[in-house]
Design a protein around this nucleic acid. Structure first.
Length: 749
DNA sequence: GGGAACTTTAATGGAAGTTC
DNA sequence: GAACTTCCATTAAAGTTCCC
């Protein structure tokens, strides 16, 4: 038999790496005898460093481990009331970070020492009892579909906030829908604060966009995403890639629930253009990827405006999503774990599942057919409380009470002192750019101890924020006192309290928002007329510089001094014609007195006149003031009743001229109740109709102007950046004095 | 295999700073 | 001044190891 033929070598020549070492120098910083610590994230290193610093600051021997946790625990209790609880998770977390850091940097801590201290700080341990430690502060909350849909309806049809960067409204909602519909963590698509400046998050290159034929044979879009999982970004092959779509043949829902709509910022190619591949899907103001911090803050602020005083975070939506997936018999455990980014089933049970499993155990016991309705879902709704009549700013009675407190007055005095000192400073000291640069440099090079004692960069701003903080605390107390513990239900009961510019007033100066408010609640498909119109309006919103505009008034004025200020254009146009009146509800000029009278009559008889009547500047335009006394005086002509005051001073002068400080009934007969004294009457007009109390007081006893009481008219007319002001969406006819009782019920027109 | 214990990573809200 | 950014303290979430 022939010897087996030696097979000829195929393929590339085999390499011997150890023979290819020419010129290689061994880096002794890497190659040495030192033990290698586990590779951990930067944030973890930082956490460890902090605990070692704590150790060095407190004690210097292993025997003092107990003293170490005792001191940390007592420091954490600092400022807390005796019956306030301290979370075991916090102290235990610090302890574990310390032991891990010590083991890395200094050596091993004896095991019996570790066990002793761990037992000491348990809620049932001696130190645990001393510190009033509790195992946790309550179960995880779930934010249900009802919370999401109300948030969407509010955000697109009632929200009074004006975004300085209009695209943020679109991106915020898109990021929320995308995250909720894929049960994501906030850091899956946005840049987590724990991975700060890492640029980790969803970019176009991490997505795949397809068009396909759906169950109805119609074309439909879907987008596959990549989740950048907590702790697993270094393992890209394990990252989940869930998708969002248009719901196929299922009944269309309100357009604002269509996640694809808000991602279509331009005509979408099926393959992303190379130039956008490295761009984030959601941007912050700087053009970089949106940070989870910004998203969380905006989401919280939005949900509070929508009436959730203790709003759920994104993780509560994730928990609800995973709970519902778990309850769906069509989904396997593997599918749910992959979607969630979990490595085992245990995580779902421990952190996400509702304590009410939502099964019909009665039917199971009786061996009868289980009912289809999931009662557990009803109980989950109770986890997020909703107050449809939430105050969004302090009622005047509470504000006056707060401003009389020592703490408030002391801060006010400090602000006055600072303002006076600043005026006396020479021009070339702290405002000099070079000085500022040096000061900044000094701060950067200061030691931590020096930084603690260093003067603040903006002391007055800090003081103003302290005042705001006091008001916020007071508002929180008011929320607790007036809480009715409701859950999202009858949305017609929603009213805005403490808002000067509810969306019902802003509609006339927000043309795109008005259009979207009408379109996005329509149950329709993306390719319907309404869907396409909504898409066009959203693209316009994303590309616009401002959400506010006053169409119809005119883009330029008639005088030689060109101006984009709407007040100037209005005054100029009035001068130009013998008769010209502008309707601020319809945004149109009328040049005939009789037609104007008829027009006002129509508004008074057919329209709902807003409850809030104060003059307000809105970026480059304004909302005119109206007089509550003339408006509801049926003895006057309609034009007189609906007279618009286009400057703050005109409006204030007119109201003062009435000299009314008390009436038994509100001039607006839609308001219920009677007022037994001037105080309650003025509070009502201030809080509900936004007529400042100072205009209703006799001139000699008028309230002094407060530190924050700056006339809006005095502010420059250029783009005003507006924050979370208070709002109202619909009419409240009943007023209850917050100083007395809150049992009254708001109503709707 | 499963739960407990331990370790690591991230979320979140507040406070102060920066930019537009 | 509004809308961010940056940093920090606290604690929640989740991966890993230990132990029965």
């Amino acid at each position: 038999m022939d010897a087996p033929k030696k097979s000829s070598r195929r393929g590339p020549r085999r390499k011997n790496y150890m023979k290819q070492q020419d010129g290689v120098e061994i880096d002794t910083s890497i190659v040495n005898n030192k033990p290698v610590n586990k590779n951990v994230e930067d944030i973890t290193e930082k956490n460890y460093e902090r605990q070692l610093q704590n150790w060095d600051d407190f004690v210097d021997s292993l025997e003092d481990l107990k003293e170490y946790v005792f001191r940390i625990g007592m420091a954490m209790r600092g400022g807390k009331l005796p019956d306030e609880r301290l979370s075991w998770k916090g102290l235990n977390s610090y302890w574990k970070k310390f032991t891990a850091a010590y083991n890395r940097e200094r050596g091993t801590i004896p095991k019996d020492h570790l066990t002793s201290v761990t037992r000491l700080i348990e809620p049932r341990g001696a130190l645990g009892k001393r510190l009033n430690i509790v195992a946790d502060k309550g179960p995880r909350r779930h934010a249900t579909a009802e919370v999401l849909t109300w948030a969407g309806e509010f955000f697109w049809t009632l929200d009074w906030k004006i975004f300085a960067r209009p695209r943020l409204r679109n991106d915020l909602w898109a990021a929320l829908l995308q995250s909720v519909f894929t049960a994501a963590r906030v850091s899956d698509y946005l840049e987590s604060s724990s991975r700060y400046n890492s640029n980790i998050g969803l970019h176009y290159k991490d997505t795949q966009f397809i068009v396909y034929q759906n169950e109805r044979g119609e074309p439909e879009f879907a987008l596959q995403l990549t989740k950048f999982l907590k702790g697993r970004c270094h393992l890209p092959s394990t990252l989940p890639t869930p998708d969002i779509h248009e719901r196929g043949k299922l009944e269309p829902q309100a357009l604002y629930t269509n996640p694809i709509l808000f991602l279509a910022k331009e005509i979408i190619p099926i393959q992303w253009h190379g130039s956008v591949l490295n761009s984030p899907i959601f941007c912050g103001a700087s053009g970089r990827i949106m940070t989870a911090g910004l998203f969380s803050k905006e989401l919280r602020s939005l949900l509070i405006r929508a009436g959730f005083p203790n709003p759920p975070g994104l993780h509560s939506f994730r928990a609800e999503g995973l709970t519902n997936i778990d309850a769906n018999p069509n989904c396997s455990d593997i599918q749910r774990q992959t979607m969630a980014g979990h490595v085992n089933n245990h995580i779902q049970a421990r952190h996400y599942a509702s304590r009410n499993p939502g099964i019909d155990s009665q039917a199971a016991f009786m061996r009868t057919q289980a009912r289809l309705m999931n009662i557990g879902e009803l109980f989950r709704n109770l986890e997020i409380s909703w107050e449809p009549e939430l105050w969004h700013s302090l009622p005047i009675a509470k504000k006056e009470q707060l401003s009389m407190s020592d703490e408030y007055r002391e801060i006010e005095a400090q602000i006055r002192a600072f303002t006076t000192t600043k005026l006396e400073l020479p021009m070339d000291s702290p405002t000099d750019p070079e000085f500022k640069h040096e000061a900044k440099h000094e701060v950067i090079t200061m030691s931590p101890a020096e930084v603690d004692e260093a003067p603040l960069a903006h002391p007055v701003r800090k003081l103003r924020r302290d005042l705001e903080s006091l008001e916020k605390k007071s508002l929180n107390m008011l929320w607790e006192e007036t809480s009715k513990g409701m859950v999202v239900g009858d949305k017609r009961t929603f009213v805005c309290r403490g808002i000067s510019r509810p969306f019902s007033r802003l509609r006339s100066v927000m043309p795109l928002r008005r259009q979207l408010a009408d379109l996005l609640t329509i149950p329709a498909r993306l390719r319907s007329t309404e869907g396409k119109a909504a898409l066009v309006a959203l693209v316009k919103l994303c590309n616009s510089k401002t959400e506010a505009d006053r169409p119809g008034l005119g883009a330029t004025c008639h005088c030689s001094r060109s101006s984009s200020d709407h007040l100037h254009i209005y005054k100029c146009t009035k001068k130009q014609f013998s008769f010209a009146e502008f309707c601020f509800f319809c945004n149109q000029w009328l040049y005939d007195a009789e037609a104007w009278e008829r027009h006002c009559h129509d508004h008074l008889t057919q329209d709902l006149i807003p409850m809030e009547l104060s003059w307000k500047r809105v970026e480059t335009t304004f909302l005119p003031g109206h007089c509550p006394f003339c408006l509801w005086d049926t003895g006057l002509g309609c034009a007189k009743r609906l007279q618009s005051f286009c400057s703050l001073s005109d409006w204030e002068t007119h109201i003062r001229a009435h000299g009314v400080s008390w009436q038994e009934r509100c001039p607006n007969l839609r308001c219920e109740g009677s007022f037994h004294d001037g105080e309650s009457y003025q509070n009502h007009l201030h809080d509900l109709h936004r007529v400042p109390k100072k205009l209703l007081l006799p001139a000699q006893t008028s309230l002094k102007r407060g530190v924050d009481d700056v006339s809006q008219e005095e502010l420059p007319a250029k783009k005003a950046k507006l924050g979370d002001g208070p709002v109202e969406a619909r009419f409240v006819f009943h007023y209850c004095d917050p100083g007395e009782t809150f049992s009254g019920k708001g109503g709707l027109a």
